[in-house]
Structure formats: C-alpha cells, structure tokens
Nucleic acid binder design. Structure first.
Lengths: 116, 116
DNA sequence: ATATAAATGCAAATAGTTTGCAATAGTGAG
DNA sequence: CTCACTATTGCAAACTATTTGCATTTATAT
C-alpha cells in the first residue's frame, strides 16, 4: 500500500509535532474538528506502525499518541496529571536491571509522583 | 463502606494469587464462570483501590490485574508475549534518572525484548 | 431473629476504537 | 491535461471493554 500525500494527515502530524504532551485521538479531534475522528484514528495507527509516533496507555485511560522526536521517558504528576518528559541513561539502567536470559530491545521508565 | 466477607471475592483473589501472570477480567471470568463478569470487575477495582492488586495497561490491550506480593517490574517478550517479572534496585535507578523538581513516589520499569 | 447495608446479577448504558462501504481525491501513465 | 487506479476520507454501524442502575441476596452486628 503506497502512501499518498494528504492534507489531513499532515495536519494531524503537525498537531502532534507541536504538542508538548501526548494527545488522545479525541484531543486531536478537538483541535481539528473538520477531520473525522475515524480518520484521526486511522492516521494515528499508521504513524504508530511506522514508528513515527509512539502510542501509550497510561493507567486506565484512552490511548495517547506522541510524536517521537527522540526517545524519552515519562513522569506523571499524581496531583495535576501533567506528563513531563525526561531523558535517562538507558544503557546504564538496563545494566542495573541485571536481566539474564532476556535481551532488552526497549526500555520504558515511568515514574509517578509530584511535580513542583 | 465497611467490607464484608464474600466467597466470590475470596475466589477471585485466590485466582489472582495463584497466577504467575497478570490476568484480564475476562480471563478470570473464564476460570470462574459462575461469577458474573460485573462482579469480577467490581472486586478487581476494589483490590486495586486497596493496593492489594496492581492494575496495568499493556500496549493497547484490556486492563490486566496482578496480585501484588512484592513490588517488581515487567519484561515482555515480543515473540511470545510472555510477561516475566524481575526486581531491580529502584532507589539506584531513581537516582540515575536525576530528576529535579519532581518527587518520585512510584517507579515502573518495563522492558520489551526477547526471552530465551 | 431481625434490621441494616454490602455484595451480587442482570440488563442496559457508556466509552473508546474498529470496520464496511460508497464517495472523494492524489498520483503516475499516456 | 486527462484518465485510470487505488489510497484516503466520512458516515453509519459494529465491537470490545468497562461502568451504572436497580432489584435481590447475603453477611454481620445487635
């Protein structure tokens, strides 16, 4: 399935790129009401397959999508629900985990607490 | 709301305690078909509130629940979908993260890769 | 035993996401 | 530029996971 250019797809990507926090399909739809929610879902799914966008499931909530500029982790504030990004020395952490019989491809660290 | 004893609740807890992997509400219902799915959901939610059971959302799937014997992290095999547990030096990891302006209450580490 | 409120089951509602299909619109060939 | 081909979109409807309302059952304290 060869991809074509599409203004709607570009608009969705633009929203993702300019957002500092992960967005749900519904949140994107609010910013782009002219684009059908279904179209948004379909494009997000394509982005995720292409690994251009990362798809998450924070505790019990709907899926959230985020443009994957560079790998990072998430800190979620239990008070205000804000999601902060941070980078970490992944290799060192993986080493600290001391996993045997398991080859780590991806590391995902999430912390919950209070932002200040 | 004072809790009473309940055979069904105990049965659900027993299933959780004896399972090595996290279970979905539906999976528990399969093992305990006599208990209504709604009752299972309600009890799981109570367990989670009481922090006796941990609730997860692995990539795009339904919620999974797991008896919280002692804190640990998850390694998910991309080939066979098996979920392995492992412990890690949480404090050291949190220190490595070097988070400023954020007070960490919970650390959750998930790795994806290949088990052997 | 009895009253009180918690626990359960059933049906129905809700929320998030996916699918089928017909209409629309990029793209490459001529 | 025009045409054929098929990707993309919108709408309605299906689906899945989860929650809610309410009447019934059941545990527990008196």
């Amino acid at each position: 399935m060869i991809k074509r250019q599409s203004k709607k797809r570009d608009a969705i990507m633009e929203v993702l790129k300019t957002s500092k926090a992960p967005l749900s399909a519904a949140a994107i739809h609010e910013k782009l009401p002219a684009i059908d929610l279904v179209t948004i879902y379909r494009n997000l799914e394509m982005f995720a397959e292409d690994k251009i966008v990362k798809k998450f499931h924070f505790a019990g909530a709907e899926a959230h999508f985020e443009f994957q500029s560079e790998p990072h982790h998430h800190a979620i504030c239990l008070d205000c629900d804000k999601v902060l990004h941070f980078k970490a020395p992944d290799k060192k952490i993986v080493k600290l985990l001391g996993l045997e019989d398991f080859e780590v491809d991806e590391l995902e660290v999430t912390v919950r607490g209070k932002c200040k």
